[in-house]
Design a binder for these strands. Structure first.
Length: 216
DNA sequence: CTAGTGATTCCCT
DNA sequence: GGGAATCACTAGC
């Protein structure tokens, strides 16, 4: 018997914890994007942790800038960045005000509003691909820098918020190295930054980081 | 399935 | 100036 997902918002103190504690706890939670045409709801299936000042792979590693400013603010807010000239990716800020850690939302399953997500993701061959990858996830939900700094703990009062949903039992959580991150030191290092739901078809495939060659 | 590469623009050095 | 927390597409196995 499947429990009905909990539609109460996650409280701010949920995010005011160490990022490696928050990240696996976000799996199975519901992200709601309200749009003029109706809500799009996504169940989180894959996330990745960035540990602020201690983490060479984090955007916050080299200090506060206009781009990463929201990461240094209070927990429970959305940090959106623009990358590769074309894409946006979204994070949820964790830890106390000033700490600058965050969880990148890498993939999810669209559980409501799939017809709206499909219009934004015309290249998706099936619904499993709608949010399979961090930029795809942001595209499917219509998230860009205009939503940078949104409070995700204020249900109904913001265009983007997180509900308790159904947390995933720890025996269904898998973890491993981050994907595609420069300065992550290759392999043997540190923490299991990336977390996903075992055998979930919406989880993005692993890709090792490849340094780009210069254009001729 | 895997591996390689072009697209395209912002931001920090 | 040049790298970037990616994607879509192609070729080849």
């Amino acid at each position: 018997m499947i429990a009905t997902p909990d539609r109460t918002p996650l409280p701010r103190n949920f995010f005011d914890r160490p990022v490696l504690e928050v990240a696996p706890d976000l799996l199975g939670r519901l992200l709601v994007r309200t749009t003029p045409d109706g809500p799009i709801t996504l169940r989180l299936t894959e996330v990745e942790a960035y540990d602020g000042p201690n983490d060479p792979g984090s955007h916050a590693y080299r200090g506060r800038t206009p781009r990463n400013d929201v990461m240094f603010g209070p927990p429970g807010h959305v940090y959106v960045y623009f990358t590769y000239g074309m894409w946006h990716c979204m994070n949820l800020v964790c830890g106390p005000d000033g700490q600058a850690s965050a969880v990148l939302l890498r993939a999810g399953e669209i559980v409501e509003g799939a017809e709206l997500a499909r219009k934004r993701r015309l290249s998706a061959r099936n619904d499993k691909e709608l949010a399979k990858g961090p930029a795809r996830l942001a595209t499917a939900l219509g998230v860009d820098r205009a939503l940078d700094g949104t409070d995700a703990c204020a249900s109904g009062e913001t265009p983007l918020y997180v509900l308790a949903g159904t947390p995933v039992p720890s025996d269904q959580v898998r973890n491993g190295p981050r994907t595609g991150v420069a300065g992550d030191g290759g392999n043997g290092d540190a923490h299991p930054w990336r977390y996903w739901i075992a055998n979930d078809p919406t989880v993005s495939p692993y890709r090792a980081h490849v340094p780009r060659r210069r254009r001729s």
